[in-house]
Simulated assay, not measured.
Amino acid sequence: MPVDMPLEERVEIPAALLRWYDAHARALPWRSPPGAPAPAAYRVWLSEVMLQQTTVAAVKSYFEAFTTRWPTVEALAAADEAEVMSAWAGLGYYARARNMLACARAVMRDHGGCFPDTETELRALPGIGAYTAAAVAAIAFGRRAVVVDANVERVVARLFAVEEALPAAKAVLHALADSITPPTRAGDFAQAMMDLGATLCSPRKPACALCPLQAPCAARALGTAERFPIKAATKARPRRFGTVFWVERDGHVLLVTRESKGLLGGMRALPTGPWQDEAPGLADAPLGGDWRIGATEVSHVFTHFALDLAIARLRVEKGCTEKPAGEWWPIQRLDTAGLPTVFAKAARKVLEDRNG
């Protein structure tokens, strides 16, 4: 059970946190400073989609590139899907990009180009879950909404010394966050909680002496702040094996577009065979020939499994009449193809081995 914090202490938390936020808010490209008009819902939504399971440092350059190229939801909705997926390459979790484009088009089609301002309506849009809906409602529209990301979970778990382990504790943490969310400045409060978790209330060695909430914090009083939040033991990821095919012809490499559904759907990629429990060899090779599988492998970790890819190589002569599905991409411009990270790794390995 969490610590039963007295009501008078809970009431003081928003004021203390907002005073700290007014002085120490992070300057981020998708934010407005404390006291300034709220940022456009498009920018809030886009940043929140990008930030899902991705660091702020990694997102900044992508956000600025996207908002330069597609400055409004209308512009994004009209964008070519292949161009959007290519621009997203490297951020990972590619279903987010597909849902993002579907959401932009739904906003244009069903809401006249304006994001709705309630959590219920926002959740009805493609790819918007409870957290993103709450963040957009609070930050862009000033609605009182309970915004709980991983940083907020950590702050709340420590404030109340929550003994229940994550992920089972999520409902308890949300309820406790609700109990301290103020009726006004909900957007600033949400961002203040995020900033506190990202800067002072860090996973390791939290700066409790500098924290604006040190007085009511139960974990600090116990001297065990680093112990929270408690997390259930994680299971080892299963490992899969596959082969990625490098087909080269006259300074070009064969690329394919993956099926729109599934992992890395709709992305431009190197051809690959099945990913399974045992090495598949040359299964599903894009064309016949004298393939050579070298000792070099590429490893990549996805959310639910780890992948080891062997690299098979083939050089095709100009006179070859077999025409594999895909497109021939100039090797010297391969960095412009927007390959997902796992295939970009494989391409680098091939080029390093060839140039080494």
Results as ranks from 00 to 15, higher is better:
His252Met: 06
Gly242Asp: 03
Cys320Ala: 14
Ala344Asp: 15
Asp250Arg: 07
Pro203Tyr: 01
Leu222Ser: 07
Leu264Met: 03
Glu48Thr: 12
Val301His: 09
Asp149Arg: 02
Lys323Glu: 15
Ala175Ser: 13
Ala347Tyr: 10
Val156Met: 02
Leu28Arg: 07
Val162Cys: 01
Trp88Met: 01
Arg19Val: 15
Ala177Val: 08
Pro330Trp: 06
Val244Ser: 01
Val148Thr: 00
Val146Asn: 01
Val247His: 01
Leu122Tyr: 09
Glu278Ser: 13
Leu17Gln: 14
Cys320Met: 08
Glu48Ser: 08
Ser47Leu: 09
Leu263Lys: 10
Ile293Cys: 11
Leu159Pro: 00
Ile139Ala: 05
Lys205Phe: 04
Arg239Thr: 15
Ala135Val: 06
Thr303Ser: 15
Ala207Ser: 12
Leu307Ala: 12
Ala218Val: 02
Leu287Glu: 05
Asp117Pro: 00
Arg220Thr: 11
Leu7Asn: 10
Thr184Ile: 10
Lys60Ala: 11
Ile311Leu: 15
Thr257Trp: 00
Ala78Phe: 14
Thr72Leu: 07
Leu264Trp: 07
Val59Arg: 11
Val342Trp: 15
Thr55Ser: 15
Ala157His: 03
Trp45Gly: 01
Gly90Met: 10
Ala233Gly: 04
Ala218Pro: 00
Asp308Gly: 06
Leu213Phe: 00
His300Tyr: 14
Ala207Trp: 03
Arg143Asp: 09
Gly92Trp: 11
Ala65Gly: 13
Glu121Cys: 06
Ala102Met: 08
Leu264Cys: 02
Gly338Gln: 13
Ser47Trp: 02
Thr243Asp: 03
Glu248Trp: 10
Thr341Lys: 08
Ala337Lys: 07
Phe228Pro: 09
Glu153Lys: 01
Ala79Gln: 01
Ala106Lys: 13
Gly338Ala: 14
Gly289Ile: 14
Asp353Gln: 15
Ala157Cys: 07
Val350Pro: 02
Thr184Pro: 03
Cys320Gln: 13
Gly112Asp: 01
Asp290Ile: 10
Pro71Leu: 07
Gly326Phe: 10
Arg268Ser: 00
Leu287Arg: 12
Leu282Ser: 04
Ala38Glu: 06
Val316Met: 07
Arg123Gly: 02
Phe63Leu: 09
Gly319Leu: 12
Gly319Asn: 14
Pro340Gly: 08
Thr303Glu: 12
Arg204Lys: 14
Ala221Cys: 05
Val162Asp: 02
Leu351Ile: 14
Lys323Phe: 03
Ala138Ser: 05
Ile311Lys: 04
Ser260Asn: 12
Thr341Met: 08
Thr54Ile: 08
Arg227Ala: 14
Phe305Asp: 13
Leu176Ala: 10
Asp80His: 03
Ala27Gly: 07
Glu83Arg: 09
Val49Pro: 02
Leu7Glu: 15
Pro126Tyr: 04
Ala82Asp: 09
Asp335Cys: 03
Glu48Pro: 12
Lys205Val: 04
Arg143Pro: 06
Ala138Ile: 00
Phe66Met: 12
Gly129Arg: 03
Ala79Met: 06
Pro324Glu: 01
Val146His: 05
Ala283Pro: 03
Glu327Met: 11
Gln52Trp: 13
Leu210Gln: 14
Met5Asn: 02
Arg292Phe: 05
Val56Glu: 08
Glu278Met: 09
Glu164Gly: 06
Leu173Ile: 04
Ala279Pro: 01
Ser61Tyr: 00
Arg268Thr: 05
Thr55Tyr: 04
Ala16Asp: 12
Ala77Leu: 04
Leu210Ile: 01
Pro6Leu: 07
Trp88Asp: 00
Pro37Asp: 01
Pro340Tyr: 09
Pro183Val: 14
Leu7Asp: 15
Glu163Trp: 12
